[in-house]
């Protein structure tokens, strides 16, 4: 299937900055949510100072446990949830500023696929209308939108004559997720955010959809932000990986480096919790104990210190920073042990 489809040299008129300019730069994004009944002024620090760069044509995997803010981050990137502070720069243009790019223009170029394939489709709309809806809203004629929908359905592996007239309840989970991918691609985005897009699927179907996503990325020249809690899937599909813990980035680097030699103790624990498929290699003791703490009142200093086997006084007193990173080969971690001057007894070893 993949061998026959060759990636053509592709020039996108909307690509203003060229290949060297990042697709997306997030600077100190912050989003807190007020919570009632948890004390005065209590806030959930869902996204708390997240900065990263997404380069053109790459797949950036975002991993973390539930409540670490990965889905809120995805919504902030599309302004589905407005950030409290911080900047978002899309291909050189700041989002939402007078001289920058409008939110509507951003959403034409960045689309999202959600986890729940059923609830993200209109149950009363046939598949072909659902897919044609995006182009139509964006000013295409009805006939033109229909034609786009047919093309895209073919691309995601659904025969338009067979599946076009069907309603969502007549489709299997994998087919519904293909429709959601078609919907996202119908407006011709340059970047797609996949928020746990394969997590609800069975393994045999998940593999089909992952293959499809990789093929679409090649043929349509897409950039992916791939959010998942499944480390095996992230390792497989990502060029770089960003690890989140309680609203912050704790590690960022090329996937091969992060998985071969994780620098942050949390990443190490996550990797150590992966189940092997070999019953002779069972995990004898858990890498870390306890559950992630509540993001309402996160621990002072390093947020991971309450579960970290290497925590010391400095970890409580000071919040570690992610450190300097220059390009897509940089591998950084927000841990005092990575910084030789931090005062941690194991400083400079990680």
């Amino acid at each position: 299937m993949s061998a026959t489809v060759q990636a053509k040299p592709y020039v996108d008129g909307r690509d203003r900055g060229g290949a060297a300019q990042p697709m997306l730069i997030a600077k100190e994004l912050q989003r807190h949510f007020k919570v009632k009944g948890a004390g005065k002024g209590a806030v959930v620090r869902a996204v708390d100072g997240v900065s990263f760069t997404l380069f053109k044509g790459e797949t950036l995997g975002v991993v973390g446990e539930s409540g670490c803010g990965k889905s809120t981050l995805a919504r902030v990137l599309l302004h589905l949830v407005l950030p409290d502070s911080g900047d978002l720069v899309f291909d050189g243009d700041t989002v939402g500023e007078t001289r920058g790019i409008s939110v509507a223009d951003l959403r034409r170029q960045v689309q999202m696929v959600f986890q729940d394939s059923y609830s993200s489709l209109n149950p009363r709309m046939p598949v072909q209308d659902s897919v044609a809806f995006g182009p139509m809203v964006n000013g295409k004629s009805k006939a033109e939108s229909r034609r786009i929908a047919q093309d895209i359905l073919v691309k995601v592996g659904l025969r338009p004559d067979l599946f076009g007239p069907r309603y969502p309840h007549e489709l299997s989970g994998g087919q519904k997720q293909r429709v959601n991918i078609a919907r996202a691609l119908a407006v011709g985005p340059r970047m797609v955010i996949l928020d746990e897009a394969v997590s609800a699927l069975d393994k045999s179907v998940e593999a089909q959809v992952l293959n499809l996503l990789r093929e679409l990325k090649r043929t349509l020249n897409l950039t992916y932000l791939f959010i998942s809690h499944d480390l095996n899937v992230v390792r497989y599909i990502s060029d770089r990986v960003l690890v989140m813990y309680l609203g912050q980035v704790v590690e960022l680097g090329p996937a091969a480096d992060v998985f071969a030699k994780a620098r942050h103790p949390y990443t190490q624990a996550l990797l150590g919790s992966r189940l092997s498929m070999d019953s002779s290699k069972r995990i004898e003791s858990p890498p870390i104990v306890g559950d992630p703490p509540s993001p309402i009142n996160p621990p002072s200093g390093c947020r991971f210190r309450t579960r970290c086997p290497h925590a010391e006084a400095v970890c409580e007193a000071e919040m570690p920073t992610l450190g300097q990173w220059e390009d897509r080969s940089s591998h950084v971690a927000a841990c005092h042990m990575t910084n030789a001057q931090s005062g941690h007894s194991l400083a400079g070893t990680a």
Partner: peptide
Amino acid sequence: STVHDQAPDQDIAAIP
């Protein structure tokens, strides 16, 4: 078809 240490540049052998 279970994703587990497959080479990133190869398709996964999915069940059709």
